[in-house]
Amino acid sequence: MKKAIVYVNQFFGQIGGEEKAGAAPEIHEGQIGPAMQFAKELEDTEVTHTIICGDNYMGSNTDEAVQTILGMLEGKEMDIFLAGPAFQAGRYTVACGTICKAVKEKFGVPVVTSMNEETPGVDMFKKEMYILKGGNIASKMRQDVKAMANVANKLLKGEPVGDAETEGYFARGIRHQVWLEDGTPATVRMIDMLLKKLNGEPFKTELPMPKLDRVPIAPAIKDLPHAKIALLNTGGIVPVDNPDHIQSASATRWGRYNIADTEALKGGEYKTIHAGFDPAAADANPNVITPVDALKVLQKEGVFGSLHDYFYTTVGTGTTEAEARRMAKEIIPYLKEDGVDGVIMVST
């Protein structure tokens, strides 16, 4: 028999309404409120404890509340942690997300919650966990618990959880290929979408355009003639023996190569290992991707102060954003340590 623990707020924990929203966390053996229905819906799983915490307490004393609850869970057998459903109660949704995230990080167990799409908890936590799309009022309790239990049962049995639309959870920013059950080929989907679009009827794209992610503009270098510049590239320029074994596509590795005493990169000493384009030009003259020759001259002319002793290389093609982020984070400390002021990135 697997074990589950359920988190609810003061209202669903039957302590009281708004006047009890400041209540500190408490843990009870057995099932209170929604936990009773979870006990019915979960397969081969016992709901051993119910944790109750006031929404205001969790909101105003977050760290303390989280620490207290994690302490309560310490040493307890637990295969899954469930919070809510939180419906359209704003503070409750944030509380559910907060505690689920903490429990998942600390104990490594799967967590599931539920909230209405109009609540702040959704955007804050949807990438971190399964959040079922919940109703707006508590009368949806039965169906929201059922939807949570449906996903929870799969997690408990180690079965794959289906896609967001089928299972009814908020998409987590993860896209994978799936085989359509009825095998409908692309042509049929294409004709269907085409006719609807031509006839002004609603249609549904299979690739909704994601929102673009922006970073604030870093301030300009104030004193360029004394600034230190570093050169990075995703064009795969490496010494000919590729000492860091950087992959020619879907790269997970990067390298840095000393150019302190190099006036220009020479063909035969450096080459590109990038597989996404014709390498002939860059193999013959690597400076066409990593313009070390031009930078050395510009430095001598006083356009900028000095060049960081190393240039940095990886391969851009097919490389995931997560890998690119990680590699950048590994490179940044070297730049900081050497007091680099600005960076040139050449992408192919």
Binding site: A164, G173, I174, R175, G183, T184, A186, R189, M190
Partner: peptide
Amino acid sequence: DQVIGWSPKTMKEF
């Protein structure tokens, strides 16, 4: 990936 038209696959959000 049969973008030519046969593809029985699609992409779904998870």
